[in-house]
Design a binder for these strands. Sequence first.
DNA 1: ATTGAAATCCACTTGTA
DNA 2: TACAAGTGGATTTCAAT
Lengths: 155, 155
Amino acid sequence: MDELDSAILAELQTDARQTNRELARRLGVAPSTALERVRALERRDVIRGYHADVSLAALHRGVQAMISVQVRPLHRQVIDSFQDFVATLPEVLSIFVLAGNDDFLLHVAVQDLDRLHAFLVDRLAKRKEVTGFKTSVIYRHTHSTAISALKSIET
Amino acid sequence: MDELDSAILAELQTDARQTNRELARRLGVAPSTALERVRALERRDVIRGYHADVSLAALHRGVQAMISVQVRPLHRQVIDSFQDFVATLPEVLSIFVLAGNDDFLLHVAVQDLDRLHAFLVDRLAKRKEVTGFKTSVIYRHTHSTAISALKSIET
DNA sequence: ATTGAAATCCACTTGTA
DNA sequence: TACAAGTGGATTTCAAT
């Protein structure tokens, strides 16, 4: 992981479909060098995959929400099986397992508020291990486009 | 947006770097057809971009947290300027603007708990508009790999 | 809108240092 | 490890349906 690797990651996070020649040109190295570096990053699982970013509105999922969930008892088996359950629900984009008061945070996207309500009542509330949840509608959501390595500052 | 478009989106969300020929083969259409569809989806901003998924651990960001933040007064100018501020911070992966008790939810990734503490104390707490925040460390985070269109069920 | 074919461009391998 | 050149294969354009 040197500066060239970091630069490659920054480029591919921004645009994963640029050609290897384009990538090499931007980095100022030979295409074969860039290709070998990218392959190595893939092999080491530094790059885990390449994904298209698709508009939620285009998929009829204009309404997003964050749902914090408490489950009881807090046993591994309960936690894992609840996580497996929510992972199968098409409304769920992302699952966070948390420390603190809330045990899970679910990022969901649905067509409208009626569907959100239906999701909460028909899916979540039906689970016996769910002892409480709180829903916050999301007005906006933004991503950082390129995540770079944080410097280790020795003091 | 027909079934072919949906299938293309599912494929490219799963693997954005597969070749156009491979994509066409899976869909059972000619490569030129697949290419034209993809271009159209890009033009209509259904596909917003293609991004490499990079391991946070490899970037020395093994510790993730969710931070719920309250800001006051709740004026547009305050909300927007706070959002602009946090968007510049390298620790911040994602920003949610919420309805309800909390105004913002920040998904952050840092090297260790010391850096998390430093972020909270040196960055967040210094802002005058921030009247409170609550931090939850993230044990696990999983994504749904392919987000598909939710059916509109007419009743 | 979809296709097949032609032309251009690129990925990937090999050879070299 | 990096590079340059060559080959096979892919992308892209275009005329036709």
